[in-house]
Design a protein around this nucleic acid. Structure first.
Lengths: 337, 337
DNA sequence: GAAGCTTATGTTACCCGTGCCATCTGTAAC
DNA sequence: GTTACAGATGGCACGGGTAACATAAGCTTC
């Protein structure tokens, strides 16, 4: 027992060493399970550790090894974007499992300068890897500089040099949603897309387009929203004025909420007059009226997979999480004429 | 992750110093905007920084001063809680403003052991402060040990020794919601509460109870959900079977979604048969059917305020963010009899 | 013109875990 | 008895930014 009870100061390995009557080096070896430590010595050391409530300090290792055992996560702050929580949880869980901690950097909006700043910030913190959960429009030189130095995985984003990409199969999501509507007998499927800078949005739109093309249908112009329910509402007011519209593929559940509201206000009911399929399967999708037919996305799994990809140098390249169509009550066959 | 991780030996301050023909200390002073640096010298240093692409390294500072300029954020992973994204964004923005980075620790469920582990993990990382955005049921000795060493602010949680508490005025939220229903002419207000471990839930319930008591009404038993829309749905099925129910105060928007669905399925329409007021004002609250009358919570602001409280040693004690009632269409006067 | 102060810069020591090498003991091999 | 070697442990330097102190020059004041 040491009489020196320094308040506020954490004990160091040297303190433990003194208490156990060995050198700091031996303490270090003991704690790292080095082979050449006598059983009796180990016991004494561990005892001292217990006694002093010694806590390992990673800073010196970071100092000499350059590794911080911290991963950076870039998120978009913009409200209402559900994927965030799921991806975050997945990333954090998988990282924690592997002994890494997660440092976040949110960017207020989709802007190259802000993006650069965030990457720089994470780089300054000395993160060992970066997970970008934000679409990248244009990749600047500076971004490349950083992602060249630090392993990077992009979840549902565009490709950076050296960055590995991973995500849900958005193309398939768009296809499946559209096909479901065609299968119900709809002759045409309209589309409310997400912002075109978002890879997800573009891929979903492509899936929709190609599915229509495969059925020999000329795709109507896509309407572009910003993921918000408000934008869905706005675009819904437009669609409600077009009598031909009987089926709409909406790029997110939240926009679908707005769309349904607009249609209802204009006297067009879902699914009797208009069928709607969206994407995400947020928790509330099953509890609105009518419950949404939607393509489920497993964000948690994506986040976890991103970390796995980052930490495991073996699995190079891309990987995709499947998307599954959940049929509820926002879709029906068109009214017979 | 192996050699790919190693950021090729980055230049150090000494390298910059050599390039600029000054001492490392002067470089340090320049980068930290110390007052006593000659303009010409500063120019040369910054030039060298640019040239060598020098990046600041925080590890040594953590090593010698113990300050990491990192804040820890404890979140609950459990899905569907809107508060998380808002609080996170607020925390990160305010922290970034002050030059701090944010490291997250999510706990899978409300469990003392997990909570301890998270705090320990953050403590190991050397965070300068901790923001707990999770309700604390019972505070263990180990938690106290940590929160005594590290400044801690709890957002909408219970009180830890030494931890400062901050949050939205939940009591007032419950009162305002209930009063609104009474003002419309309802004789009785039922309540679907959140889990009782949550301080928010308890405070909202108290506000409801006291408001009824003040009006001379005996409060009916509160039904307890778990914040999920599913639990709202389940409890809604029960309430739908009680003809006397004309007004319900629901502790969260998401539960309200479920409740409304259950009522509709049982042929009771909102707000004609039953009025509903909930809490949160999530983005979708305005886009469901009917749009929800709800008490708005500014999570972003709470998060930002938590950081301010943490970093500013002056402002001791608690602080409350106001809650405002947003009247939409889920409430109406009771049917006249 | 010496004391006293300000401004600008350099020097040194420190934080603490770990890689590397040195040391010491005991034991097996010749 | 001498060499060889493994096992166990200690000593020391290193990493990079910074607090604390030292130094040097310029300027004011009496």
């Amino acid at each position: 027992m040491t009489e020196a009870t320094m308040r506020g100061k954490q004990p160091s390995m040297t303190d433990v060493a003194r208490a156990a009557g060995v050198s700091a080096q031996t303490v270090s070896r003991t704690l790292r399970d080095s082979p050449n430590v006598n059983a009796e010595t180990r016991r004494r050391v561990l005892n001292a550790v217990e006694q002093l409530k010694y806590r390992y300090n990673g800073a010196p290792r970071l100092l000499s090894s350059g590794r911080s055992f911290t991963l950076g996560l870039v998120l978009l702050q913009a409200g209402g974007y559900y994927s965030r929580s799921g991806v975050t949880a997945g990333v954090e869980a998988a990282a924690g499992q592997a002994g890494y901690s997660v440092s976040i950097a949110t960017i207020a909006e989709l802007d190259t300068a802000l993006m650069e700043k965030s990457l720089l910030k994470l780089s300054d913190q000395g993160v060992d890897g970066i997970i970008i959960a934000v679409p990248l429009i244009s990749v600047t030189q500076r971004m490349e500089d950083i992602t060249r130095d630090i392993p990077t995985v992009t979840v549902d984003g565009s490709r950076t040099t050296g960055a590995r990409v991973l995500g849900i199969d958005q193309h398939e999501a768009g296809r499946a949603a559209t096909q479901h509507l065609l299968d119900l007998g709809h002759r045409q499927v309209w589309h409310v897309a997400g912002p075109d800078e978002w890879i997800e949005a573009r891929q979903r739109r492509q899936g929709w387009q190609e599915c229509l093309a495969a059925a020999g249908i000329d795709a109507p112009p896509a309407l572009e929203g910003d993921w918000s329910p408000e934008s869905g509402y706005r675009l819904g007011q437009i669609l409600a004025m077009i009598p031909e519209v009987t089926a709409v593929f909406v790029a997110s559940d939240e926009m679908a909420f707005g769309l349904i509201k607009a249609l209802r206000e204009r006297g067009r009911s879902v699914p009797q007059d208009v069928s709607i399929v969206s994407v995400d399967d947020i928790e509330l999708a099953a509890y609105c009226h009518p419950p949404l037919t939607t393509v489920r996305q497993d964000f948690y799994r994506s986040g976890a997979a991103a970390v796995a990809l980052l930490l495991d140098t073996q699995s190079e390249g891309e990987s995709l999480t499947p998307a599954t169509l959940i049929v509820r009550e926002s879709t029906a066959a068109p009214r017979s004429r």
